[in-house]
Design a protein around this nucleic acid. Structure first.
Lengths: 103, 103
DNA sequence: TACATTAATATCGAATTCCGATAACGATAT
DNA sequence: ATATCGTTATCGGAATTCGATATTAATGTA
């Protein structure tokens, strides 16, 4: 599968995963991108950061700046609203994927 | 979940579902849109038809015009390449969704 | 003090995609 | 002939995506 098709199909999944990870612990862009890379998923910062910004604007994440070894990191954690959306999205995602395996 | 968020998260899933359905039987736009609607998923024709066109251009679907009761329908079926992509996408989708339920 | 380095976020402009609305199509019915 | 019907195509504006580049702020080092 070429990269363009991959992103076309899976960028939405990745957005849900952002919520999922931000529900478990605070996350920040660089680290999240690295983890995606480790799993073979590439996403440009020019795509990733605006996604964080929009999720924040929609009230699904909140950001907090933190100084770590002199570098400013922007940690995101999920909001209550974000958690509701996450649960809903997770169920829908499961339904849709289960269907793909129905004969 | 508002409609915009929904589409943002799930349009990729829907594209995979297009391949899935076109692998089972010939599908056409109007009918596919109706079925999405029945399941509560709304997608505009201005979005749907270009998706079909691009999947065709990429060689994942092929189209065949058919006259049904005097109306021209464009039936799409999956290609061999499309089938490979579908299988790959389905596995990745399953992995990603399973992860969402870990812990 | 100045300057380079580093980890990280922000933003740019071009290309692509998405969307609701509108147009177009071609066959049948009136 | 023209109205209607089911269907596909396309329009223009908005939003998103992308790779590349700029920016930030603290630290290290000369």
């Amino acid at each position: 599968m070429d990269n363009q098709t991959f992103r076309d199909f899976f960028l939405g999944f990745i957005k849900i995963h952002i919520l999922y990870h931000a529900a478990k612990e605070p996350i920040y862009g660089q680290e999240f991108a690295d983890e995606l890379n480790r799993h073979g998923y590439k996403i440009s910062f020019g795509t990733l950061y605006p996604i964080f910004h929009r999720l924040e604007q929609k009230g699904l994440l909140i950001a907090e700046n933190k100084n770590v070894k002199g570098k400013v990191r922007k940690y995101y954690i999920i909001t209550e609203k974000g958690n509701e959306i996450l649960k809903e999205a997770r169920l829908k995602a499961k339904e849709l994927v289960d269907e793909l395996f129905e004969n």
